[in-house]
Design a protein around this nucleic acid. Sequence first.
DNA 1: ACATCAATGTTGGCAGTGTATACATAGATG
DNA 2: CATCTATGTATACACTGCCAACATTGATGT
Lengths: 207, 207
Amino acid sequence: MNKRSGETYHHGNLHDTLIAAAIELIREKGPNAFSLRELAKKAGVSHTAPYRHFKDKNALLAAIAETGFKTLTERTRNAAMQFEGNPKQQLIETGIAYVELALDNPEITQLMFGGFIDTEKCPKENLDSEADNAFQGLVNLIESGKQSGVFRNEETELLALATWSMVHGLAMLITGGQLCGIADEQDQVRNLSEKVECLLMEGILVR
Amino acid sequence: MNKRSGETYHHGNLHDTLIAAAIELIREKGPNAFSLRELAKKAGVSHTAPYRHFKDKNALLAAIAETGFKTLTERTRNAAMQFEGNPKQQLIETGIAYVELALDNPEITQLMFGGFIDTEKCPKENLDSEADNAFQGLVNLIESGKQSGVFRNEETELLALATWSMVHGLAMLITGGQLCGIADEQDQVRNLSEKVECLLMEGILVR
DNA sequence: ACATCAATGTTGGCAGTGTATACATAGATG
DNA sequence: CATCTATGTATACACTGCCAACATTGATGT
């Protein structure tokens, strides 16, 4: 029996609908504080329907995190592409993109990196490989910068880790609310990201 | 009536016992996945006794995070004190202490920074002021380094933010499992922290 | 010494949660 | 058109956070 005329028994695209609705809920209430039942209601479906598409709540969270990693790689790659041949600027823009994405999606960022997902319960290979994609882009960027003589001839992995840590740390401090008032508006964040990355490039020691 | 002879109706120090037991549980199961009832049982007390000491679960988590921030300021300050008069080394050791603490207490670190605590529901002033203490130590360190001509004459807050971000990012990547295999042992982490911070000091650009 | 009180503990209950199981429906396939 | 399988529902259970009512006891003032 239909619940209303016009609605069908089968939803049609519940998988994606659930993810989209869950992202909305997470935005409103944080990654911690939303329930599958609430989500099901929001999607207009019985409270066990989600289990046909996700093994459990953890799996749903993992799927959302995965989309987060995908857009992260996408955005940072786009940022880098706009300054092909200029590794220094590429690095700066990549970092800005990273931090801006975090600012726009603080709860999702926390979901991705904050330990909300039990990685022992889910395969996690997808998650890891997506995260690796983002990191690999950075590695390539550094490598090409080294070869064109812009970056120092240190171990590439180390340079990549340093730049990643810097940008990631800034992003996490912002999403965690540690920089309230200092960096919660878009232009402040752009500005800070750039300055901080320039510091990393130039060094903070007097020469 | 006593539950056993020798045990008293009043626990005596339930507040601290709860915090200690909660930390243990969080270590085992993550900051997300422990229940107040489980905690109460572990402390040998009825399932509502914790409410005499903490307004709700969130308040308990906040109290735990607060202890985390306290030991963070303590450890980093100690690290800096051992190299008084040598700002460069102070900065390096402070960073190492920060990251090592995170490595030793990944779940607590996630609790502190990961967005598990609803800051709208609890006063949070305590939390913030503790976090500020840690940051202030860094600011002082940078300031003295600038005055002795070791660090560049950039805005102090900016230099502090850059170093904090770097170290914090590394710490969060480690606790989030993003650096599995690269940095999960104590000596690897010490080594990486140092190298990464040296990069920040020297810069990554060719001169 | 004793009554009183506030702090601290317990019992019981409620609505809400994740998830397992059994059943219902309908789109796809032969 | 019969059948299968993917997808959705109904029901049930143990567990959760938290509230309200009651119990115990160490501290306090007289």
